[in-house]
Amino acid sequence: MARDFRSYIFRKTVYLAITILLILAFNFILFRIMPGDPARAVIPKGASDEVIAMLRDKWGLDEPYLSQFVTYLVNIFQGDLGTSFTVRVNYPVTGIIGPALANTLVLVGTGTALAVLAGVMLGRLAAWRRGTVTDRVASGFFLIFYCMPTFLFALILLSLFTKYIPDWPSRGAYGEDYRYLDLWGKIGDRAYHTLLPLGALVVEEIAAFAIITRSALIDVMTEEYMVTAVAKGMRSKDILHSHAMPNAMLPVVTVVAMYVGWVLSGSIMIEVIFSYPGLGKLTWDAVWGEDYPVLQAAFMLETVAVLIANYSADLLLFKLDPRVKI
């Protein structure tokens, strides 16, 4: 068993490395085939040809692609993501992305945690009460929120809150005085500002997780061992806890990991609508600024985050389900 687990981890890690390499290559190629001359884009207000030539040289834009790729990899592993073209002119990308990443982690991290907790709880409730009025009403709500595009829901929430609650903040991850607050003040300020975007982000995810949990549980309940359990005269609560839930959690864990990507995507819309200064809004700014270094870095981070989530889910699955191979 132990050796099995080790080889499993090894295998998964190799896959992870391959996929990350694939992503880096993809990232590299994608942003090389983008329209426009990056050197042109870095020069603020008409600079002379010499300056442009100098910058081309500095960015290594005239070298062959392969050596550019190697430089790119080396730079990334040294933590150098280049400098921003237009989002914050000439500012190192790492410096821009740092705070944005932190903000997004707060939003997406709490969002996912909350969504998983609430979603699984609600899904369990609905599945357990399958076919009753509770289930129907709950499923109806899940469905509506699941089908509601995140941006639409966010817009509705925003206009309602700003209209009817006079002091409710409509933008940002924290208030304007954030930097002058003490630690608790900062945390409180953040919580206060994050509540609304979080709500907008989380409701859809809760609905999604609830639907998944519900169907997974119902699947499990059709298994014969459940009938056996009932026949043995086990209490339904015990059946739920010791038989149904652990088995139902397997697909849920897989899907949750895959959903991290979805939540990240959702957070882009939320961040744009709430002017929340996170990775999503940064991606957004970089798209319109045609700021390839920033876009590249943001894209890479987002992808790698999802990859790592999946990797952890795979490991978790192995622990949860002894049958898992590959």
């Binding site: 990507g261 990240l264 995507s265 819309m269 894209f299 999802v306 999946n310």
Partner: peptide, 8 residues
């Protein structure tokens, strides 16, 4: 599968 679809 894992790439966040929206940025992509």
């Amino acid at each position: 599968l894992v790439i966040p679809w929206l940025p992509l």
